[in-house]
Computed example of a mutant assay.
Amino acid sequence: MATARCACGALTLSLREPPQLTALCHCLACQRRTGAPFSANAFYATDCVEISGVSTEYTRTGDSGRKVRMHFCPTCGSTVYWMAEASPTWVGVAIGSFADPTFAPPAISVFEESKHDWVQLGDTVDHFHGLPRA
């Protein structure tokens, strides 16, 4: 079982299965959310996630018109997880919240249309200008 948590430990996710997908996202919303040039994300089936602690929710409307509900710790401000209308059976979890350097590497890199030019990923991931189809 893997555990993700915020910086202060008040908001914790226990995950009973491995992620179904790992991805980097270069969209401007993720850049703003993380304060970094991209976000590193793991996606889990909702039925394998146990959430402990209180979160504050911020809902953002994406370019598609669909909503993403981001959950962050009201004490330390760490964004730990999110749920997107576009993928209702998945919970997205910030890979950094695992604090595990051996965590599975990303399989895909999305929204590279807004990727910083100096970010070089090579052939270790599948590259997508926007979102992959299907």
Rank of each mutant, 00 (worst) to 15 (best):
S109Y: 00
L24M: 14
E112G: 12
T56Q: 12
Y44S: 11
P106Q: 02
V125E: 01
D117K: 04
L11I: 03
G92R: 09
T46K: 12
D47Q: 07
W82H: 04
T79D: 09
L24V: 11
C25I: 05
G92F: 07
C76E: 14
A134T: 09
N41C: 04
L13E: 08
E113S: 15
D126M: 02
G92L: 06
L15T: 03
Q31T: 11
R133D: 02
D126R: 07
M1G: 08
R33S: 08
L21P: 02
A29C: 08
D123N: 11
E17H: 15
G65Y: 01
H129K: 09
F128V: 08
I108K: 10
R5V: 00
D117T: 04
A99Q: 03
W90K: 06
H116A: 15
T59A: 15
V49F: 00
A45G: 10
T75W: 10
F103K: 03
S78N: 02
G62R: 00
A99L: 02
P105R: 14
R16P: 03
G96C: 00
Y44A: 14
A36P: 12
L21W: 08
Y81P: 04
A10E: 13
T89C: 07
T56C: 10
S109W: 00
H26A: 02
A29H: 04
M83V: 00
S87A: 13
A99N: 01
A7T: 07
R33D: 14
F111I: 02
E112T: 05
E57Q: 13
G35Y: 06
H116F: 14
S109V: 09
S39C: 01
Q120C: 00
D100E: 15
A45P: 15
M70V: 15
K67N: 13
E50C: 09
L21Q: 09
L21N: 07
D126V: 04
V119N: 08
C76H: 14
L28D: 03
V110Q: 00
Q31I: 11
A134Y: 14
D63Y: 01
G92W: 09
C76Q: 13
P101M: 05
G92E: 12
F98N: 05
W90M: 10
C6F: 11
F103L: 01
F43V: 06
W82M: 03
T124G: 01
R66L: 10
P18D: 15
S109H: 03
Q20L: 04
E17L: 09
P101K: 01
V125W: 00
V68M: 10
E112Q: 09
E17R: 04
T75D: 13
R16T: 10
R69S: 03
G77R: 13
